[in-house]
Simulated scan of single mutants.
Amino acid sequence: MAETDTQDAPVDRNAKSAMWRGFCRRCPHCGEGHLFTGYLKVVDRCPVCQESLSGHRADDGPAYLTILIVGHLLAPILIYSFVEYRPDPLVLATIFTIGTVALSLFLLPRLKGLVVGIQWANGMHGFGQRH
C-alpha cells in the first residue's frame, strides 16, 4: 500500500470503536495494524493504514488507571481472603504480590492503547482535529 496522508481525508473517529481497538492493542483508525512495536512503545505509523500515531501523549495516565483498577479489584479480595480463611501472612503476601504484578502487566499495555485511542478519536495532541 502506498503511503498516504490520512489527515487530509475525512475520517470517522468513533470514540467507542477507537477505545476498543486501542484496548485490543490495534490501530485506533483501522483496527488492523499493531499499535505497539514492543511492550509499551507505540509505532510511529500504522503498518496497514499508515495513520500517524507518533503524536500520542499517554504519559502517566495508563499507569494511574492500572493502579486504580488493580487496587480496587484486589484490595477487597485480599481483605475477604484474610478475614475468611486466615492464611499465613507470608502465603497471602506471596499470592497477592504475584497476582498484582501479573494483572498490572496484563492491563498496562491495554490501558495505554485505550488512552491512545481516546486521544486519536478526539483529535488531541498530534492527531489533528476531529472531522
Score class of each variant (00 low, 15 high):
residue 2 A to T: 12
residue 2 A to S: 14
residue 2 A to D: 00
residue 4 T to I: 10
residue 5 D to N: 13
residue 6 T to I: 15
residue 9 A to D: 00
residue 9 A to I: 14
residue 10 P to E: 05
residue 12 D to K: 08
residue 13 R to A: 05
residue 13 R to G: 05
residue 17 S to F: 05
residue 17 S to I: 10
residue 17 S to M: 11
residue 17 S to Y: 03
residue 18 A to C: 12
residue 18 A to N: 15
residue 18 A to F: 01
residue 19 M to Y: 01
residue 19 M to S: 08
residue 21 R to K: 11
residue 21 R to F: 01
residue 22 G to W: 00
residue 22 G to K: 08
residue 22 G to L: 13
residue 23 F to I: 04
residue 24 C to R: 10
residue 26 R to D: 01
residue 26 R to T: 09
residue 27 C to K: 13
residue 28 P to F: 03
residue 30 C to E: 00
residue 31 G to Y: 00
residue 31 G to K: 11
residue 32 E to Q: 07
residue 33 G to L: 03
residue 34 H to K: 15
residue 37 T to I: 07
residue 37 T to A: 12
residue 40 L to S: 08
residue 40 L to C: 05
residue 41 K to A: 12
residue 41 K to D: 04
residue 41 K to L: 11
residue 42 V to T: 11
residue 42 V to W: 00
residue 45 R to Q: 09
residue 45 R to H: 04
residue 45 R to N: 12
residue 45 R to D: 12
residue 48 V to M: 07
residue 48 V to R: 08
residue 51 E to F: 10
residue 53 L to T: 15
residue 53 L to A: 13
residue 55 G to S: 13
residue 56 H to P: 14
residue 57 R to C: 15
residue 59 D to C: 10
residue 60 D to R: 11
residue 62 P to M: 06
residue 63 A to G: 04
residue 64 Y to R: 14
residue 66 T to V: 15
residue 66 T to A: 08
residue 67 I to Y: 01
residue 67 I to H: 02
residue 67 I to V: 11
residue 69 I to A: 00
residue 70 V to M: 04
residue 70 V to A: 04
residue 72 H to L: 13
residue 72 H to S: 12
residue 73 L to M: 10
residue 74 L to Y: 01
residue 74 L to T: 07
residue 75 A to Q: 07
residue 77 I to M: 08
residue 78 L to R: 12
residue 79 I to D: 14
residue 79 I to G: 03
residue 80 Y to I: 09
residue 80 Y to R: 11
residue 81 S to A: 10
residue 82 F to A: 09
residue 83 V to T: 06
residue 84 E to P: 02
residue 85 Y to A: 07
residue 85 Y to K: 14
residue 86 R to F: 01
residue 86 R to L: 08
residue 88 D to S: 06
residue 88 D to I: 08
residue 89 P to C: 13
residue 90 L to P: 00
residue 91 V to T: 14
residue 91 V to K: 00
residue 94 T to Q: 05
residue 94 T to S: 11
residue 95 I to Q: 03
residue 96 F to D: 02
residue 98 I to G: 04
residue 99 G to P: 08
residue 99 G to L: 06
residue 101 V to K: 09
residue 103 L to T: 08
residue 103 L to D: 01
residue 103 L to M: 12
residue 105 L to E: 09
residue 105 L to N: 07
residue 106 F to G: 05
residue 106 F to T: 05
residue 107 L to I: 12
residue 108 L to S: 09
residue 110 R to L: 12
residue 110 R to P: 07
residue 111 L to P: 02
residue 111 L to T: 02
residue 112 K to I: 01
residue 113 G to D: 01
residue 114 L to F: 03
residue 116 V to G: 04
residue 117 G to C: 14
residue 117 G to P: 02
residue 118 I to H: 04
residue 118 I to L: 10
residue 119 Q to K: 14
residue 120 W to F: 06
residue 121 A to Y: 05
residue 121 A to Q: 06
residue 122 N to D: 12
residue 123 G to H: 03
residue 124 M to G: 14
residue 127 F to W: 03
residue 128 G to Q: 14
residue 128 G to W: 01
residue 128 G to R: 12
residue 129 Q to E: 14
residue 129 Q to S: 08
residue 129 Q to F: 00
residue 130 R to D: 09
residue 131 H to P: 05
